[in-house]
């Protein structure tokens, strides 16, 4: 920690000192500036993501394809795979029946409970990752577009507030890295915009496949804040803000990320 903390503070200090505005006054990342996290990876890592054989994320996608078509009441008995093309690009989404904001993982679990008489899968369970990856892959290349009005509005505001709220022992908000300093070097990394369009993704640091919420937990831990629960309302709300912020970006799952 002692090795990178000074670097981080040095990088972020000017913004930290100058900016005393509260989050509600902070501007969102302009739509024309939006770039996928792929833009901040090395050519080798981008090539691995683009290789639909070598990309290890496809191990989960293929497992998801098997799960989608198996069981007493398979997902495929209601959904033809091609009818789900584009679906994942519109999540998180408010669901009136559930009375809640659902991301793709939560939608799959709702389906299991209400239509398949199956218990919900634990967040980060291999099967849930696999199913989410498979359904997300059906929307590969589609532009992310989420609804933030109506019943989704309070979630959106809550997620946006989380994004701009300083937190943790380092007292940093998401925007201080991902809006104000993207593209700059932080040790060996280039700071990305924190875009959600490649998730679920294979993260090299984890040496495995994981969810966006797991990634956000690492961000919170990185600023020495208490990570929230994966699948929690607050992270799903943040996911909605991130998806709106990423509007127009192509869905890339299964991505490869550092």
């Amino acid at each position: 920690m002692t090795r990178w903390l000074p670097t981080l503070l040095l990088t972020l200090a000017p913004a930290a000192v100058a900016d005393t505005r509260s989050f509600v006054d902070r501007p969102d990342l302009p739509a024309e500036a939006v770039q996928s996290g792929s833009a901040f990876l090395t050519a080798e890592t981008r090539a691995l993501q683009a290789d639909d054989f070598a990309n290890p994320g496809y191990l989960w996608v293929e497992r998801g394809r098997e799960l989608f078509g198996s069981g007493e009441k398979a997902c495929s008995s209601c959904h033809q795979a091609d009818t789900l093309a584009g679906a994942a690009a519109h999540y998180p989404q408010y669901d009136a029946a559930a009375g809640a904001l659902l991301n793709l993982e939560a939608r799959i679990n709702r389906c299991r409970q209400s239509h398949q008489a199956l218990p919900p899968l634990a967040y980060e369970a291999e099967e849930l990752l696999a199913l989410t990856a498979y359904v997300a892959t059906l929307s590969q290349g589609q532009a992310i577009t989420v609804a933030i009005g109506g019943a989704a509005a309070p979630y959106f505001q809550q997620g946006r507030a989380y994004y701009f709220q300083r937190r943790g022992q380092l007292n940093l908000a998401c925007n201080q890295c991902h809006d104000d300093h993207w593209g700059k070097q932080l040790r060996g990394d280039t700071i990305s915009q924190g875009q959600p369009n490649a998730w679920p993704a294979y993260r090299l640091e984890w040496q495995t496949f994981g969810s966006l919420h797991r990634r956000i937990r690492d961000c919170d831990a990185g600023v020495r804040a208490e990570p929230q629960a994966s699948g929690s309302e607050i992270y799903t709300s943040l996911e909605l803000y991130l998806a709106w912020r990423a509007r127009g970006l192509s869905l890339e799952s299964p991505g490869i990320r550092r």
Binding site: F53, L59, W60, R63, A130
Partner: peptide, 9 residues
């Protein structure tokens, strides 16, 4: 996982 290997041949 049951998908334990992918083969390209």
């Amino acid at each position: 996982m049951s998908t334990t290997i992918r083969i390209a041949a």
